[in-house]
Design a protein around this nucleic acid. Structure first.
Length: 466
RNA sequence: GGCGCGGUAGCCAAGUGGUAAGGCAGAGGUCUGCAAAACCUCCAUCACCGGUUCAACUCCGGUCCGCGCCUCCA
């Protein structure tokens, strides 16, 4: 079956192909840069990375835009508290975001765009909405009038046909005509950053930036719009209301939402304080690949309950795959090709591909990989695996890792070079040959202390970094 | 209350109308100078109650439980 994704809009799994040529126009709601991102945020960004990588594996090119929200209430509050300009304040967390995502091996989007670089575009978008009668003014702010957009709720499947929804919303607090209405442009407040524009002195609301940045760079209809499940309402609903009111065209064809990561079965969030940042976990000694594996191994539409037990399981799983890769690369196999193994390799690749095609079923894709590993390890033990089988097995691992990207260890800072390790391993081999096991074990222990593991196998001596 | 997701072995988790993938952990073996690595064996009847069916974990109805959104939030 062909590539297919679950679409929040239709609540169905649908075949996917981009609208234009071979390029996927994708927009992702990026971070609000007032703090370090936590692993819940990174779960969603990891999903987007897996999505990107699989689309590319399937032969598509990406045109992916991610926004950086660098003007917003919390940013203003925090920067004032830190006695920094918002520019200084957001710059450090934007940089941290770029670093953290790189550490997790997330491919950068083709364009990473700051909201404050698109103020003019937002202003003209709001003017278009004004011209079309979708807005009203109140105390210098501009609001979107939801009553003008009958399709409101079509993404999150809320039914607003009855009385006003949202019993807990205090309408009076906002000077809004309808509890659902949201602000497009906020009137200037003393001491806060603002832009003097034709629609008033003020700053943009949150929702407008995504509509504007998406359409500015990707056109009026996106192939895919992604974000965390919590953004479906109201943020994405509002994006649809804004964008489609301006263009009259569908804003996004596929809406894909990542489920939340929880901790102790509770939602992890900045406001509740029960969160880990990537930096926290790295500080505790976990490798980036381990965290990446854990985040990627649970299919994106399934809640992921974060535990340290899960993290160590992830680390062990990666080891297993790396050991296998090492065996392929360093082992000595008899000449020839085992046709049956070639056939099974082909099958494994097909199962892997089919799992990924099926709405990114990473759990099943991993199962395909592990099943293949066990099968061919057994064949190696029996001597049935031939030198001519190595290439296609490595090719499968390469395909696997083009998506999961966990096989290459993050290089340690400092430490021994490969050459130095080879020399020490050579010394140990000599000692072993001379049956000087005390010296051989000493050398092995010394290397172990530096994070290098030596293994004596049927197929020869090999080493790896921990 | 409305909308949505889920309840499969100790933990994570796939899956399908025909008698339950995979990973981790655990037990026992094989191999081995030792240590690893690897392999083999063992370890669940799928929340509960009805119904449909030759056959349901998988379909239908109901019940219970957990979580999320409905307000800023990945």
């Amino acid at each position: 079956m062909a590539l297919r994704f679950y679409n929040t809009l239709t609540q169905k799994v649908e075949p996917f192909a981009p609208l234009h040529d071979n390029v996927v126009k994708m927009y992702t709601c990026g971070p609000t840069v007032y703090n370090y991102v936590h692993i819940g945020n990174l779960r969603t960004f990891t999903f987007q990375d897996i999505l990107r990588r699989w689309l590319q594996a399937r032969g598509y090119r990406m045109d992916h835009v991610m926004n950086i929200t660098d003007i917003e209430d919390k940013i203003i509050r925090h920067s004032l508290a830190a006695k920094q300009t918002i520019y200084e304040y957001t710059k450090q967390y934007t940089q941290a975001f770029i670093e953290d995502t790189a550490t997790l091996r997330l491919q950068p989007p083709e364009r990473l765009v700051k909201a404050t670089d698109c103020i003019d575009d937002m202003v003209s978008a709001i003017q278009k909405l004004e011209e079309r009668g979708y807005t009203y003014n109140s105390d210098g702010s501009v609001y979107y009038r939801i009553a003008k957009f009958p399709e409101y709720g079509k993404l999150s499947h809320h039914d607003f046909s009855g009385s006003l929804a949202g019993a807990r919303v205090d309408v009076d607090e906002y000077d809004k005509a309808d509890a659902r209405d949201f602000v497009l442009w906020k009137a200037k407040k003393e001491g806060e950053p603002s832009w003097d524009t034709p629609i008033g002195d003020g700053r943009p609301g949150w929702h407008i930036e995504c509509s504007v940045m998406a359409m500015k760079y990707l056109g009026e209809t996106l192939d895919i719009h992604t974000g965390g499940i919590d953004l479906a309402f109201p943020h994405h609903e509002n994006e649809i209301a804004q964008s489609e009111a301006i263009t009259g065209k569908p804003f996004a064809r596929f809406w894909m939402h990542a489920e939340h990561l929880s901790i102790d079965a509770q939602k992890m969030s900045k406001s509740m304080g029960n969160f880990f940042t990537l930096r926290d976990l790295l500080g505790q000694g976990y490798a980036p690949e381990t965290i990446r594996y854990l985040l990627a191994s649970v299919p994106y539409r399934k809640k992921l309950n974060f535990t340290f037990e899960g993290l160590s399981a992830a680390a062990t799983s990666i080891d297993r795959l790396r050991n296998y890769q090492l065996r392929l690369k360093t082992g000595h196999f008899a000449d020839g090709v085992n046709a049956a193994i070639e056939e099974r390799t082909k099958t494994a690749v097909n199962v892997f591909d089919e799992a990924m095609d099926d709405d990114l079923n990473t759990a099943e894709a991993l199962a395909a990989a592990f099943e293949f590993v066990r099968d061919t390890n057994t064949a190696m033990d029996k001597g049935e695996f031939k030198a001519g089988n190595v290439a296609s097995a490595l090719a499968f691992l390469k395909r696997f890792d083009s998506v999961f990207d966990v096989l290459e260890p993050t290089p340690p800072k400092g430490g021994l070079s490969d050459q130095e390790i080879d020399a020490l391993v050579g010394e140990r081999n000599a000692a072993k040959k001379a049956r000087d096991f005390a010296r051989a074990d000493k050398l092995r222990q010394d290397l172990a202390a530096q994070g290098v593991i030596i293994e004596d196998t049927k197929e020869g001596v090999r080493w790896k970094r921990q």
